[in-house]
Design a protein around this nucleic acid. Structure first.
Lengths: 294, 294
DNA sequence: TGTCTTGCATAGGATTTGACTATGGAAAGA
DNA sequence: TCTTTCCATAGTCAAATCCTATGCAAGACA
């Protein structure tokens, strides 16, 4: 049973003639006759009575006609729905983001995109890098915003921006008045860092290592806001990326002048993953937020 | 968009692999890949993400899958319904019959057939020959039981039986005591006949004509029962076929001994008309009621 | 009634298309 | 690093569809 056989069958039913049906379906009349006969053969019944020059549905034909029409209609509907989803910038966009980026970078791009494409339904999954990569590979998220570089044969990425790192000190700290400090200056200070699974912890430790400083970690947390509060209370110092810098009465942020004391963030997608139009649009939208490297 | 493409698509979705889908669908893997790609091309979107050795539905694929399944299901349902109707002796049988046969011949065959095939739903249309033929050609009835011969290039027929004609006389009539009479004996008698559109009127007039008798018609009716009552009341005489003979206190039936004073009834179907299994079964059933010609 | 027209079926050749085998490349596992 | 697995590509083949030409039978019309 083939689609064109159903089309031909409906055409004959509607025109009441093989010849006119063939014209309508843009085929030669014998071809159409042949396909109708094949359909009748497969079903094991005659669908039309050939009465001289008039053609009329048999009882079986009458039973079969509405079903054939329904099937053709649903074929079209299936195609239309896909086309609709393809042409309109709408549908789901699932975004993964690490906690040290989420609250600082994401709100503005999302708000603007949502205003531009109200039909897009964005969902955000905030998680640490390793689990984001699992979700990306598992298809639960379409893209992930995280620290670069992210190597992997099965992923593609582009950078969004590179930001300087800042030391965060209690306001009364002796170093808090300097315009610039280096990591060397922070040697021997008690460090407050993120927990192990946060990649920014690795970034912080890495820059310390390059400055030949071994941080003495006295506290670990899952979010910067806890660390800021702790630093404000004078429990130690920490390092944060530029986007986490904020005005606080109890803390002072001082830019680190060390070479390469920076972090780069970017967008990661799964190689070979097909993205819908709205998903591609969001990626392009993110690219407009990319800044030249510092 | 072809049926086998939908089948292949569902197979890949369900097995999660082109290779296993190809095995299940009994085709070579490249053929299946080719058809999937063709489907994707027609829809204008990718349906699967080919991620290394795993294959996963895209968002479009997830939208398309339930629709594809539904279409395949309905194709099967359409086929099954036709097969069901074909295999079972059930469904409609529309029977046409002329009024001078209906009450005498039809009840027994219908009752027996209905007992044999309770699923058959018979409907009877009682009408005169001309209108029955219209209905037959119009497809409103499947077969007609009427007087033979019924010539026509577009019809087929077979005889059921040939019955003698009887004169019907008032019980007090001078001819009522004879065992046999001829039409000549009825010359000058007032005739009660059926109305013009009834074919038995033509039959009666025809046999009179052959006997060189011109009937003097004093009453016309649409049914034998009226005529019998009139004859019983002494208003005249009439001619009826054997199956209309019945015991009445006021009438006497006497066989007409004229040559060819008979009527033949039979079954007519439309040439080229496809009959369902139950319709063919009813035709065969009627043939078992055929009697050898008198 | 005979002729012409119309409409579906049949026949045979041409084209398209779906399927096959062989093979390549990339990813996953040993 | 080597092997295996899996999908894609290339090229050939067979089958199915479509085409034109023609036959046949039923209506239409003179």
């Amino acid at each position: 049973m083939e689609v064109h056989q159903l089309r031909y069958f409906c055409a004959v039913s509607e025109t009441g003639s093989f010849t006119r049906a063939a014209e309508r379906e843009q085929v030669a009349q014998p071809s159409l006759s042949q396909q109708i006969m094949k359909l009748e053969e497969e079903l094991g019944v005659r669908l039309f009575d050939r009465l001289g020059r008039t053609v009329r549905l048999t009882g079986f034909g009458q039973v079969f006609l509405p079903r054939a029409r329904a099937i053709l209609g649903e074929l079209k509907a299936a195609k239309d729905e896909v086309a609709e989803r393809q042409s309109s910038v709408s549908g789901p966009v699932s975004i993964g983001v690490i906690p040290t980026i989420a609250p600082y970078f994401l709100p503005l791009p999302m708000a603007l995109f949502s205003r531009k494409y109200p039909q897009a339904s964005m969902t955000v999954a905030e998680d640490v890098t390793a689990r984001l990569m699992d979700r990306l590979r598992g298809g639960q998220i379409d893209l992930a915003i995280m620290a670069m570089p992210m190597r992997g044969h099965d992923v593609e990425s582009f950078n969004l921006r590179t930001e300087r790192l800042f030391a965060i000190l209690p306001r009364q700290h002796r170093l808090a008045k300097k315009r610039k400090i280096t990591l060397k200056d922070l040697r021997d200070q008690p460090f407050l860092l993120l927990r192990e699974d946060h990649c920014f912890r690795d970034t912080a430790i890495e820059v310390c290592k390059r400055a030949r400083v071994v941080p003495r970690v006295v506290f670990e947390s899952g979010q910067f806001s806890s660390i800021l509060a702790m630093v404000g209370a004078g429990l130690g110092i920490s390092i944060v990326p530029e986007m986490a810098v904020e005005q606080r009465p109890d803390c002072t942020f001082v830019s680190l002048s060390d070479d390469r004391a920076s972090r780069t963030i970017g967008v990661v997608t799964l190689k070979g993953r097909y993205l819908s139009r709205v998903q591609r649009a969001f990626l392009a939208h993110l690219q407009t937020f990319a800044q030249k490297d510092v």
